[in-house]
């Protein structure tokens, strides 16, 4: 009976996690502060640079990019111009640039961390066994939860937003890089080995080029996931379109919410199609 009663008293998981977080926060507080300050400065600078570009010039650049990336077709280019004109018309241009910076930074960081992790995972069975459950954990955990350590480490603002987005968006790049490299046909690996390739030569000349399409698909997923994190990150003070959605939600302004939401969707479509067609373009060139 007493044992059963013991079971009924909760194990202090929450307390311990909190203690752990406190320790981490205290130990690395100066580093976190450094990242927070400099990161915020850097991103502010990028955003202000982006907003200083006249919107029409920006649209033109995007349209030209879309035109060539899709193989000289007008579809995406026209959609981009119309979509961006709508966002500009609704007075959300600055917000859009903030979102753009946030997505760009979190995607870049996720890719920089994710690809080497994926390579490591594809080369070592042990690393794969360790990383797989962690990636599963990261992907099933609701995105909101990442806001808690983000706030604990970095306070509020754009830097914790990026931090939460990176964690949320990282898994696809890691997974697809691993998958892509493991899918390189065995006889090509043998050919590379039989001519005496070193680890790096094999990676750069055979494995990465041949898994490029798969890795690019992973990167595309990562970009879209980090974009979907924008709204959530706005709850801890990250600026951008997400903040408009959030404030519309808080004030029950259905119309404003709809406009901000549509703007996000437009931006997402442009980003998605652009990264996808970049991928197609490259894999065709390789054949």
């Amino acid at each position: 009976m007493s044992k059963l009663l013991n079971l009924a008293t909760p194990i202090p998981v929450a307390e311990n996690v909190e203690k752990l977080m406190d320790i981490v926060t205290d130990t690395f507080s100066s580093q976190f502060r450094f990242i927070q300050n400099n990161g915020a400065d850097l991103m502010d600078f990028v955003t202000s640079t982006l907003t200083s570009i006249p919107p029409y010039v920006f649209m033109l650049i995007v349209a030209v990019l879309a035109f060539f990336a899709t193989g000289k077709k007008f579809g995406l280019a026209i959609f981009s111009i119309l979509g961006l004109l709508f966002i500009l018309n609704q007075g959300l241009w600055d917000q859009l640039m903030n979102t753009f910076t946030l997505v760009m930074f979190s995607s870049l960081i996720a890719i920089i961390i994710g690809i080497p992790l994926g390579i490591l995972m594809s080369k070592s069975k042990v690393v794969e066994e360790i990383l797989k459950p962690i990636l599963d954990f990261m992907q099933t955990m609701p995105g909101f939860v990442y806001l808690i350590p983000a706030v604990a480490f970095f306070g509020i603002g754009v830097v914790p937003g990026v931090f939460a987005s990176v964690i949320f968006a990282l898994p696809p790049t890691v997974r697809f890089t691993n998958l892509g490299i493991r899918q390189v046909p065995k006889h090509l690996i043998e050919a590379a080995d039989s001519y005496g390739s070193t680890f790096t030569q094999k990676l750069l000349k055979v494995e990465l080029p041949l898994s490029k399409a798969t890795i690019m698909a992973g990167i595309n997923q990562t970009v879209l996931l980090s974009l979907s994190m924008v709204v959530i990150a706005s709850m801890i003070g990250a600026p951008g379109l997400g903040r408009e959605v959030l404030s519309a939600l808080q004030r029950a302004q259905i119309g404003n919410g709809f406009v901000a939401g549509i703007s996000l969707v437009i931006f997402a479509i442009i980003v998605d199609r652009l990264t996808q067609s970049l991928n197609k373009d490259k894999s065709n060139g390789g054949k």
């Binding site: 006889h187 090509l188 043998e190 001519y195 005496g196 080029p209 041949l210 390789g286 054949k287």
Partner: peptide, 21 residues
Amino acid sequence: LQIVRREKMSMVFQNFALFPQ
């Protein structure tokens, strides 16, 4: 071993094993 593979022998494969890219 890499040096031996580079300098002593080359291999030709059944399914050609040419690098497609």
